[in-house]
Design a protein around this nucleic acid. Structure first.
Lengths: 200, 200
DNA sequence: TTATTATTCCGAGGCACCCTCACTTTAGTC
DNA sequence: GACTAAAGTGAGGGTGCCTCGGAATAATAA
């Protein structure tokens, strides 16, 4: 296995890969993560076998599609909203994830199961999300802005639930619902510093 | 059209109707509202055409299946949890709906769209649910236990979101999440009478 | 009991989708 | 220009949705 100088990858493969991804993005936006794969192949101007050659199954396709999107999300999380309280930072994060997970109908459910299911192509991304959530939650709790009984898993579920609702109500109401969810994390007696936990 | 004395309905029709309903209940419990209708017909020991003869489409089948269940829910709402505060009554109702809507995977989404979609066979049931929600919400708000900006539509969405989460997390966590949702409805300053808004 | 007939049941068939695989085509290399 | 690994192709087998024309049958009448 030493003389196998690898060939340069074929140009058509690269081209088709990108075409499929673009078609899938369109289809998922319009019809959700359950969109027809044959339809996607058709849109991409490619045979169905070619699609399967690049992506062994629907989840792999979703995962590839989400890779950049996730990168953007993590970058967003890294950039500190300077001057914001810890609870504010958590709320901001929750809003960002909710918007992200509402990009395609059905995505919230995938992210939900991806956290537990290690076989899922989304597992790693979910774990990174969970880690960020954990960190922000710890700070927010320390600041006294969050109930003691709230776990990172709870926040994960709530963010995805917010996304799920966003799939089905007007955007304005979706924002309001997120605010209510965030409000639910606050301790029973609102004796924290003023201005904490404003949504987004 | 006066001499058409109606024949007694055929016994086999009645029998098959019930068999299909029973099979559908099993299938929906196991696989959600998207379960294969051909599979349901098979389970019921009936040809696919017979199933369609009784239920023109999947939604009609769901609606028939939910009729009794909804009746039970409305009865539950009617029975006054005597001695409970208005916010408690609302929380109790939200819990009941969340449990109901989690009976079959996918049901929460159906109930969500059934509220707006007048063509849906579930529309009427959804409207009744909404009316109950409206009443309980008004009382709870009057008692000062709920934020002013919370609408019945919000509560509807939140109840169904609770059901959606319940489909995907252990029951214990689901209860906790419901509690957090309910907590989110409380006004910013917790200056209401003690003991208000305990979940369930 | 038997005949009548409205009602119900049946399942093949057309369409869409999922996914695989034996075969063809093609891009990179020599 | 020939060679060949890589990629592309699409028919085909499986499942599901739903329809529809013809077969079967339960209620009724004779």
């Amino acid at each position: 296995m030493s003389g196998t100088r690898t060939r340069r990858p074929r140009a058509d493969a690269q081209r088709n890969y990108e075409r499929i991804l673009a078609a899938a993005d369109d289809a998922f936006r319009e019809q959700g993560t359950g969109a027809s794969l044959e339809g996607i192949a058709r849109r991409a101007g490619v045979a169905i076998g070619t699609l399967y050659g690049h992506f062994p199954n629907r989840r792999a396709l979703s995962a590839a599609l989400l890779r950049e999107r996730h990168a953007a999300l993590f970058e967003f999380a890294a950039e500190p909203p300077n001057g914001a309280t810890a609870p504010d930072a958590l709320a901001r994060w929750m809003g960002a994830v909710a918007v992200h997970a509402a990009a395609y109908r059905g995505l919230a459910a995938l992210l939900m199961e991806g956290l537990d299911d290690e076989a899922s192509e989304l597992h790693e991304a979910c774990e990174r999300m969970a880690a960020i959530t954990e960190t922000l939650l710890a700070s927010a709790r320390e600041a006294g802005g969050v109930r003691d009984d709230v776990t990172a898993a709870d926040v994960h579920a709530l963010m995805n639930a917010a996304a799920w609702m966003r799939e089905q109500v007007p955007q304005e109401q979706a924002e309001h619902l997120l605010l209510l969810l965030v409000n639910g994390l606050r301790p029973d007696r609102a004796d924290t510093a003023p201005g904490s936990m404003a949504a987004n």
